[in-house]
Amino acid sequence: MSKEEPIAKKPQGSRYTLRVWRQAGKDKAGGLQTYTVNGIIPNMSFLEMLDVLNEQLVKEGKEAIAFDSDCREGICGMCSLVIDGVAHGPHAGCTTCSVRMRDFPAGSTITIEPFRARAFPVIKDLVVDRSSFDQIIAAGGYVSVNTGAAPDANCIPVGKEAADKAMDAAACIGCGACVAACPNASASLFTAAKITQLAMLPQGQPERKKRVVAMVEEMDRLGFGDCSNHGECEAVCPKEIGINHIAQMRRDYLMATLAP
């Protein structure tokens, strides 16, 4: 394979200093470590920059930095990272995998930390365990309909406006940035998005009250914090889900507990 020529001559990229959180395992102590990475071109994505660093580390006989990613196009919600104190980095409406290096001045120092919350324990380096989100959904984030039991799809009309509102909420990718960014580590935006999606649709009505109570209780039980309306979640949310969904959740919860 030495015959293989690179498809492009290595562009003269920039150099960055990275301070990266390293932690060997769940209950191990961790800390920031400093690395430098060269040859970074402006259109590289942030994660590609980390790929380059990792290849470099492996070649130097050092252990690569563990971080999560999958689709690398902003839809799966697998990537995370708090970049210079902001979840998903500096570009609004973007996941970390969609952030490009041109957003960082060449030669600058970038601090990279994992999403932090009690309910998101660090597994290794920048990888955290977000299974608590699945548990919130399992508590009630669904319509109880068995396969095969559905009526014709057009039997239940759904107004365009309601469908659009439901879709706004359903766009959530479950990345957890809202939790990471929240000064209280609250999961309200995530939970509210699912509750609102189903609350907007006729299909969601029969279980509406039961659902909101169950999901809110589960969210609390898992140790997420309370929502103090900082709105930082909305600002970092890659899908720009609004905190109006949280108000909707609060209305629904109030109604559900006042008139069960």
Binding site: V86, G223, A235
Partner: peptide
């Protein structure tokens, strides 16, 4: 603001920023 908050994030960030935009933080 004191009890639940620190329980929900026992280990804080080294660097904290503000996303700006629609944030009211």
């Amino acid at each position: 603001a004191l009890v639940d908050k620190s329980a929900a994030r026992p280990i804080g960030y080294e660097v904290t920023g503000n996303a700006g935009g629609r944030s009211r933080k």
